[in-house]
Amino acid sequence: MSDTRRIRSAGGATAGRADMAFFWAGRFVATLGVIVTAWAALSTGSMLVHGHPAYLVLLVLTFAVSLTVALRSWLTRTVRHRGRTGIRGVLVALSLGVIALAWWLVPSSAVEPALSAMDSDTSVTVTETADQIVLQPTGAVSEVGVFFQPGARVDARAYAAVLRPLAAAGHVVVIPKQPFGIAFLSTGAFGSARAAHPPVERWVVGGHSLGGTVAAMDAQSFAGASTDPVVGLLFFASYPANDLSGLGAGVLSISGTNDGLATPDKISASKASLPADARYLVIEGGVHAFFGDYGPQSGDGEPSISQDAARAEISAASVDFVNAFDH
């Protein structure tokens, strides 16, 4: 019998099969944690700096704990009897869950032309902080602003190019950076931003995919507000989770015929949940990933239009929609 199978703890109890199993499970999970978090950091790239800091904190903590446990376990040559098998099993399961979460949360990073659209010029000033991006017109500023929620696990910068024409048209555009890239973790962001951008007095809220669903919740909450009300709701390949048929705000839904996620059937089914006067624009040949600039998306359809052409249609329709609230 190997030496490690007969090592005794300080209390004299013999290490058994369960102790051996947890010993190797600890080594495996800790090593996996180091590998996964390192891969996640490399895959995330500049988003580690430009995204919401919550994901960076998760990766750093997971990597540090995994590395510490991995080094200690691989340097240990003894298997000790520790008991508490149930607690140890729960800890292993939780550790695997955190590592899986770190892997799943790897975001889709922004690509051109969105990255270039993050540069300020004579018509638009771009300000980026840890929790938001603001596109500010350099000239006259409209009383109507735009608050736009990104899609799930998508770099907030990915929407800079498609939304920049709104800022060039005089509208303040605020794009929140969601914790872990999940819009449902950013439900309070609009409430905090409403009074923070004078001279904006009315808002169009919008979002892409899951972000649009959260924007619809904001529209429902603030459409009747006495100050800084929501006057418009803008969907990019998205639809509401609740019945908004009585919403007191204008609605524009922009979708793509080849979208494999927010499919035409899903968009059509959502019409019953929106006001009767809601407007719809369908981008022929457009797909889900064409509403931002972050590369292809798993499960999406195949486009039959260029992304530049689709982006131009989306931007023009959005500007017309928001401009209408100036009158």
Rank of each mutant, 00 (worst) to 15 (best):
G295R: 09
R72A: 14
P150F: 15
V230G: 01
R84T: 03
A10D: 13
G170F: 13
S318Q: 14
L94C: 10
A38H: 01
S66M: 12
G260F: 08
G232Y: 09
R157S: 11
A156G: 12
V174M: 06
A272E: 15
W104F: 13
L261V: 14
V57E: 04
S73A: 13
Q297R: 05
V146E: 13
V231W: 13
R84N: 06
A219M: 04
L274H: 15
V57D: 03
A158T: 01
I87V: 15
S304M: 02
T129A: 12
V141H: 07
G97A: 11
G11M: 01
E128Y: 03
G89V: 02
S142I: 06
T138K: 04
P303D: 04
F63V: 01
L135Y: 04
A310P: 10
A262R: 06
A114K: 10
I283H: 08
S273C: 04
R279Y: 06
S2M: 05
G83N: 03
A114R: 08
T37Y: 02
K266Q: 12
S109I: 07
A54D: 14
V69S: 05
R8F: 10
Y294H: 09
Y239C: 01
W39R: 12
R6H: 14
S255R: 03
D300S: 03
V60D: 04
M47C: 06
D243M: 03
T68Q: 05
P199A: 01
F325Q: 14
S270H: 08
A70R: 11
I175M: 10
A215W: 12
V174I: 13
P165I: 07
G286T: 00
L234E: 05
A161L: 06
Q136F: 02
E143P: 04
A161R: 07
M20H: 12
R202A: 11
I175Y: 07
G246Y: 07
V36H: 09
M1R: 06
A13K: 11
V34I: 13
R164V: 02
A237T: 00
D3H: 09
V230Y: 13
S245K: 09
A276M: 02
L166M: 14
L274S: 01
I254K: 03
S95M: 09
K271I: 03
V200T: 15
V214D: 12
P53W: 10
A161C: 07
G299D: 10
S245A: 13
V174R: 10
E284A: 13
G260C: 06
P113L: 14
F148Q: 01
L61P: 02
M217G: 12
D131L: 07
L42A: 13
T76V: 01
T76G: 12
A269K: 14
R17Y: 02
L135F: 08
W74K: 02
L135P: 02
G232E: 11
P107R: 06
G51A: 09
T62D: 07
I182P: 02
